[in-house]
């Protein structure tokens, strides 16, 4: 369990952080675009004067980018040897 003996490959696509980033990336793009092109004055008035689609979209894109960076910076290592990996 010490770090020097840790072998294995990175988890790649099935790192939950990448999946979360993917969903929020798509959500972010869709509603940012909606905020830019498909938001009427009526929609803005409804949301207390805020273009909430645009701002939420930008927020989600930033969030997705941060999660991707985190996953890049600290990838999950999948151990190649089976067995208990408890740290006792």
């Amino acid at each position: 369990m010490s770090q020097s003996t840790r072998r294995g490959h990175t988890a790649g696509a099935f790192d939950i952080r990448v999946i979360i980033a993917a969903l929020f990336g798509i959500y972010g793009v869709v509603i940012t675009v909606m905020g830019l092109v498909a938001t009427s004055a009526e929609d803005i008035a409804k949301a207390a004067g805020i273009n909430i689609n645009l701002w939420s979209g930008i927020g989600m894109l930033i969030f997705a980018a941060l999660f991707l960076l985190w996953a890049r910076w600290r990838p999950i290592i999948v151990p190649e040897t089976q067995g208990e990996s408890s740290a006792e």
Binding site: I16, I19, I20, L23, F24, Y27, A47, A48, G49, I50, I52, W55, S56, M60, F63
Partner: peptide, 25 residues
């Protein structure tokens, strides 16, 4: 568990804008 983590963020993404708009209003 993985879905719960995803759900956690989607729930926050749903409620946070609602709270901000509501407070502004």
């Amino acid at each position: 568990i993985y879905n719960e983590v995803l759900q956690f963020f989607v729930i926050v993404a749903a409620l946070l804008p609602l709270t901000i708009v509501g407070l502004t209003k």
